[in-house]
Amino acid sequence: MNAPRATTPFQSLIEAHAVAVAAFLRGMLPADDVDDVLQETLVAALRAYPGFDGASPRAWLLTIARRKAIDEHRARSRRPEALAEPDAIAASPAAEGPDAALWERVAALPPKQRAAVVLRFALDLRYREVGEALGCSEAAARRNVHEAVRALRATDPTTDIEEESA
């Protein structure tokens, strides 16, 4: 039997998943970098596509996007001007209000927790797929989200902490 390989035109992956990948990158990078890294992600995916086994294309694309976001973050922190913007990775929505304040705290989470939160809450991914995209187990993905939520509640300036089922 032949090894499984992609036989779906790559364009259908773009049509089905580019919106999700874009949302993930908006959660991981400054707004100005999102378009470029999204394109880089899709070109890298196109390069690897003939060897892709066809399973979980969304998680596969998100894995590539996460690596590209990390590359971008590293490249940025090597540039001297990045010293002046220590919070370079924090995207900031234009709006103000409680959502923006909460998002600022999400943006300040460690990158892996933040990625887990974005995948879980922006894209509604199951923990199994969050794990696939982050390159960790389902259990570790769950733990990342729970720890992030706990940290957010601990830093919530408005109220006391209360556990809630996720």
């Binding site: 949302a23 993930f24 908006r26 959660g27 995207a91 900031s92 929505p93 709006a95 409680p98 959502d99 923006a100 909460l102 998002w103 999400v106 943006a107 939160v117 974005v118 809450f121 922006a122 939520v149 957010l152 509640r153 919530d156 408005t158 109220t159 006391d160 209360e162 809630e164 996720a166």
Partner: peptide, 16 residues
């Protein structure tokens, strides 16, 4: 109190 619903709304607003 930060609920899952708050979190979902805030994350969506920032990433959509």
């Amino acid at each position: 109190m930060t609920t899952d619903i708050d979190l979902k709304r805030a994350v969506r607003a920032a990433t959509t």
